[in-house]
Simulated scan of single mutants.
Amino acid sequence: MKSSDTPLTTLPLYRLAHSRSGDKGNISNISVIAYKPEYFPLLEAQLTEAALLDWFAYRKPSRVQRYLIESIHALNFVLHDVLDGGVNDALNLDTHGKALSFHLLDFPISLESRLAKDVPDIST
């Protein structure tokens, strides 16, 4: 556990990881892959099922399942009932789960400020 006086910085997830997604019916599958192995513990600690239920609350998932894939420093999330019934049932334009992975990449990740200095700024 970190000391409460350790300076923290918050970065968007996309600075630490990339994502892939897919969908089947009313289920979205999102994988988050850390750019570096040392980022994986941060992602594992902060990207919990409860955190994703909250982050995607506007889509009203009925549940989130999380799977750790430590060998490749990745997490896989299965979000149930987030696609308005799926591609064939929904009336909205984006019934695929791909946009959800982009939304997840904005998730705020807290890390020690000294570690954040080594995270590349990929926006430039």
Rank of each mutant, 00 (worst) to 15 (best):
N29A: 06
K2Q: 12
K36M: 13
D118L: 13
T9P: 00
M1H: 14
R15I: 08
L68W: 13
V119F: 05
T10H: 10
R63H: 10
P41T: 05
R114M: 15
D121L: 11
S28L: 00
S21E: 06
H80I: 13
H73A: 08
L53H: 07
G22P: 03
T95L: 13
A50T: 09
T48P: 04
T6S: 12
G86C: 03
L8Q: 05
L100N: 02
G22W: 02
R114Q: 15
L100T: 00
A57M: 06
L115F: 13
Y35W: 11
D84Y: 12
Y39W: 07
D5W: 15
H96W: 14
L83R: 06
L42V: 05
I27M: 06
H96F: 12
D84Q: 13
A17T: 04
P7G: 05
V87H: 13
V78F: 05
A116Q: 04
G97W: 01
R59F: 14
D23Y: 02
S31G: 12
V32Y: 02
L104C: 01
A57Q: 06
V87G: 12
D84E: 13
S3K: 11
T10F: 12
Y35I: 11
A57D: 08
N76M: 10
L75V: 01
I30E: 03
P7M: 06
P61W: 05
I27T: 08
H73L: 05
A57V: 05
N88S: 14
S113D: 06
S123W: 14
D106W: 15
G25K: 06
L83Y: 01
I109M: 02
G22A: 02
D94R: 15
D121Q: 10
A45I: 09
D106R: 15
K36V: 10
V82F: 08
L42Q: 01
F40Q: 00
I72C: 05
N92R: 15
A50V: 09
Y58S: 15
L104Y: 02
Q46C: 02
V119Q: 03
E112M: 11
L115N: 09
A45S: 08
D84L: 14
Y14L: 10
F107M: 01
E38Y: 10
T124M: 14
R59S: 11
F77S: 00
D81L: 07
Q65A: 15
Y39V: 07
L43R: 01
T10W: 12
F40L: 10
A51W: 01
V78R: 03
F56R: 01
S110T: 10
G86D: 08
Y35K: 09
K98G: 11
F107G: 00
L16M: 00
N29Y: 08
T124Q: 12
I30D: 00
S71F: 10
L79H: 02
W55P: 04
D106V: 15
F56E: 01
F56L: 02
L43S: 04
L104I: 07
G22N: 03
L79P: 00
F40D: 03
D118W: 12
K2P: 11
K98A: 12
P120T: 09
E44D: 12
S21A: 04
D84G: 14
E38M: 09
I122S: 09
F77I: 03
I33L: 08
A90Y: 11
N76T: 07
A90Q: 06
P41Y: 03
E112D: 06
Y67Q: 13
L47Y: 00
D121C: 11
